[in-house]
């Protein structure tokens, strides 16, 4: 499905603050894999997702999705294959536009847009059905501005937009980090449901180790720009937070796991 091979990415090359964000990253996902990604700040989690999404070009390496080499594709062209939800709830939706306009944009992801006018009634019915399914009371508010929604509602809507046209790959970049714990839980439950329903191949970055263990069939840990730990199946199910912390201490040379990861538990 997704194949990342020998990918390198550095920022501020040639300056004293050069940051080697990705150092020989290799990852191969099978169809239907739901992978959670953990790691400390600056480990390269978001950078890896952005490299896949095409936010920037990588220095070296190759990225293929479903057999297509997308390494040189600009961001908008890769969108044909990829659904994304960002950490910032404001980034995934157009706040000044209506819910139905946002969904209509999403329904046309990867399609050539034309001068066809309007949103069909059939599409509207589809939107209402899908919004009902979210169970956030948005189904009667097709003509509300997205800017009026709460952060949780916006993330749920973004998730719906990312998946309304089934993507080959779903990228979730700490999409619940900006939400309060209760809303975060709800959005994660919706995520789980949507991913299972459509059998979506998914990469989910999280800083919450419990969530990383609870969700998905595979877990990877990143450190200093590479993947240092990759578990799946039964082994992953039997993981405990303490195992991950131990692993983390081991790779970070005995230093204590960073505050953020600790607090998350």
């Amino acid at each position: 499905m997704l194949e990342i091979s020998h990918v390198y990415k550095s920022f501020n090359i040639g300056t004293p603050v050069q940051k080697d964000a990705l150092m020989d990253v290799n990852l191969k996902l099978n169809e239907g894999d739901f992978v959670t990604i953990i790691g400390g700040n600056g480990a390269g989690k978001s950078t890896m997702l952005n490299a896949v999404a095409g936010v920037f070009e990588v220095e070296k390496g190759k990225i293929t999705i479903d057999g297509t080499d997308v390494t040189k594709f600009p961001e908008y062209k890769r969108a044909k294959y990829i659904g994304r939800v960002f950490q910032d709830p404001l980034r995934g939706t157009a706040g000044d536009m209506w819910i139905e306009e946002n969904l209509a944009m999403a329904l046309r992801r990867g399609k050539t847009r034309s001068f066809v006018w309007g949103i069909s009634n059939k599409e509207r019915e589809q939107f209402v059905e899908l919004l009902k399914h979210l169970d956030l009371g948005l189904e009667d508010r097709l003509d509300s501005k997205v800017g009026l929604l709460s952060g949780g509602q916006r993330q749920a809507l973004t998730l719906l937009m990312a998946t309304i046209k089934k993507p080959q790959l779903l990228l979730l970049d700490e999409h619940t980090a900006a939400l309060d714990p209760k809303t975060a839980k709800k959005v994660l439950e919706i995520t789980q449901r949507v991913v299972e329903e459509h059998n979506l191949t998914t990469l989910m970055v999280t800083h919450n180790m419990k969530d990383a263990i609870k969700y998905g069939n595979r877990l990877i840990m990143m450190h200093n720009g590479t993947i240092i730990y990759d578990v799946s199946g039964e082994e992953k199910k039997n993981l405990h937070v303490s195992d991950l912390l131990a692993k983390f201490e081991q790779v970070s040379g005995g230093e204590f796991a960073n505050d953020r990861m600790m607090l998350a538990n």
């Binding site: 908008y76 995934g92 306009e101 946002n102 046309r108 847009r113 006018w117």
Partner: peptide, 29 residues
């Protein structure tokens, strides 16, 4: 007004509002 209602017009409005979203939805901003 009619132009704003088309797929292209909608994407143009979204570009002014949130270019990141348009790119994520496969639009060339």
């Amino acid at each position: 007004y009619c132009f704003f209602g088309t797929e292209i017009g909608c994407a143009l409005r979204a570009t002014g509002n949130n270019p990141d979203m348009v790119k994520a939805m496969g639009g060339n901003t």
